[in-house]
Design a protein around this nucleic acid. Structure first.
Lengths: 161, 161
DNA sequence: CTACTTTGATTGACACGTCAATGATGTATC
DNA sequence: GATACATCATTGACGTGTCAATCAAAGTAG
């Protein structure tokens, strides 16, 4: 029994555990940041812009209720509102009233927005392959996928207190 | 030979590869975000604040040159300057002139800053253990550490274009 | 010593994210 | 159909991050 094991699970991470943690979170952030830089260079869009463009691109008629869009990309409503305002000013999306709910708004991909998405999409995916996928053998990628799945399930079981 | 394999490595990620990628980046972000929420609740500090406090806590005399601090936590100078300004206003850190280089500034942890760090540190580490470490068996954590190491090395070999 | 370049740090402008408050519309209950 | 409550979306305030510009102090070359 370890001396560090106090009452009920109050044990802190060991040096090695902490090293894995730091490596994990820093590498993920680094990857996110590098891909974002490339997106910006290739088409002048941020990662946030890309999320919105992708969701609209995949939607029927390139159109989504604002709340649906927020849910689909996992954003808070107010964040989306602010961001849509900025994207609208740049001509990437448009906003229209919702036919079935007068409170609602529909977000529409403009042709400019679609053009930008088409321009950045392939380079972005190529970047994901080059920087992430190509780092691993197929077996390693499978393992990583399972480990991340395990982590995600664990988070599901540990809601924010 | 896959029809999707065009000339020289222009292959895009498959559906499965992309799923691992999305899972990876989203889960990392989720973890970061949950731990940040806890930090905020436990001691009113952001993840950024915590990085600065930790670096100063570990430094000799709880004091670092501004540029050294920036390098140690991997921030741009201007970001650090802005953030230090805000932390100074809150009384967490202080700034003094550097004795050996008149251009330089030294950042010092105040006693208030040290107290805040002591207050949030253990709960934060407990959160890391609970949300991250505890998700895995020791063997799984080792595997994950190695995979992340592989990824980090791959990124080192692929500098930003 | 003087001109040129580099480095340390800060600043201003602007894009971004979060939180709390708001207003307008929909839904349920009586 | 009037009251109460929930939902959709936006807004304002504020803290944060990035980029380019700035300025002072070192370092370097002649």
């Amino acid at each position: 029994m370890s001396h560090a094991t106090g009452r009920r699970g109050r044990r802190l991470p060991t040096r090695d555990e902490l090293a894995v943690w730091r490596s994990f979170i820093e590498t993920a952030e680094r990857l996110r940041s590098e891909l974002e830089t490339r997106l910006q260079a290739d088409g002048g869009v941020s990662g946030a812009d890309y999320s919105v463009l992708l969701a609209l691109w995949e939607a029927r008629d390139h159109r989504l209720r604002s709340s649906t869009l927020a849910e689909r990309i996992g954003w808070e409503r107010s964040r989306l509102s602010h961001h849509l305002g900025r994207m609208e000013r740049r001509g990437l999306i448009g906003r229209e009233d919702c036919a079935t709910d007068n409170r609602g708004a529909e977000v529409v991909l403009t042709s400019d927005g679609a053009a930008v998405f088409r321009a950045v999409s392939a380079p972005h995916l190529a970047g994901v392959r080059k920087l992430f996928v190509d780092a691993f053998t197929p077996e390693q990628l499978d393992s990583l996928g399972e480990l991340i799945g395990t982590l995600a399930s664990h988070l599901d079981e540990n809601p924010t207190r």
